[in-house]
């Protein structure tokens, strides 16, 4: 579904992504983990071209993502993206946030968009907050609205960039629950997260990154019980020592 081949990215002289080659299969849930500054977020942001790459290729369902002639706006409707900071539009209510892309980008009728939008809010458990503005919602609720918004264009792929890192601990669970139900429904997902329990329970594959390199990939069972690289072993023992 998503194929990285020999992807390289530099920020000036800094080599942010080093020769990344790996596939994400259809319906697969991939958790990308690693220490901060290892390039996880950069990697996931290259998939919908929030970040450009300097070398290599990324294809999504056969589309060359970094092809200059790609209709980027059209392409992005097929990739849902969820941000660490939610990034809801504060001047719009929850339902308006969700209906924005379907009405303005896909040109659906207002009624149709509203109906689907309400169904999506229902799915993330926030139908009763449809007319609330982002400031009236808790962090966990905002992130769930943001997930509903990303789902509104019915993308076959969802990308999550540390979706629970900005949340108070008691709100992490509600967001993870929504993500788990998406995974159960067969959504192809790439998640950058520090929630190792989520990785253990839900992920099909764990990718471990360090210094811009994809150091190790494997099933969660193999990765957590028997990491092959030193770097991953140290990372996991650092996590456990907390």
């Amino acid at each position: 579904m998503i194929r990285f081949s020999k992807v390289n990215k530099w920020y000036g002289k800094y080599h942010a992504l080093v020769d990344i080659s790996q596939d994400v299969g259809k319906g697969e849930v991939v958790v990308v983990c690693g220490p901060s500054g290892s390039g996880k977020s950069t990697l996931i942001r290259t998939v919908n071209r929030l970040e450009e790459i300097q070398d290599g290729q990324i294809t999504l369902n056969g589309t060359q993502v970094h092809d200059k002639s790609l209709d980027l706006n059209q392409f992005r409707t097929k990739v849902g993206f969820v941000f660490q900071q939610f990034n809801l539009f504060p001047h719009m209510s929850a339902i308006e946030n969700v209906c924005l892309a379907p009405t303005k980008v896909a040109g659906r009728s207002r009624n149709e968009a509203l109906e689907r939008g309400m169904a999506l809010l229902e799915r993330v458990g926030l139908a009763h907050k449809a007319s609330s503005y982002p400031q009236q919602l808790s962090g966990g609720q905002q992130q769930r609205v943001a997930i509903a918004r990303a789902l509104a264009m019915e993308p076959p792929v969802m990308l999550f960039d540390e979706p629970t890192s900005a949340l108070d601990p008691e709100m992490v669970g509600e967001v993870l629950n929504v993500m788990k139900s998406l995974a159960r429904d067969g959504m192809t997902m790439m998640c950058v997260t520090h929630e190792m329990n989520f990785a253990r329970e839900v992920a099909d594959k764990v990718w471990f990154m360090d210094h811009g390199q994809l150091v190790e990939t494997g099933t969660p069972a193999a990765f957590f019980s028997n990491p092959t690289s030193d770097r991953a072993r140290r990372f996991l023992s650092d996590l456990r020592s907390h």
């Binding site: 992005r76 941000f83 924005l100 980008v105 918004r149």
Partner: peptide, 24 residues
Amino acid sequence: GQTEAARSLGMSYGRTMRSILLPQ
């Protein structure tokens, strides 16, 4: 993040400006 969120939804530069950035 406002621009990034809007662009990630497939909105063009102009649409992002009109619907998201200018009103705020």
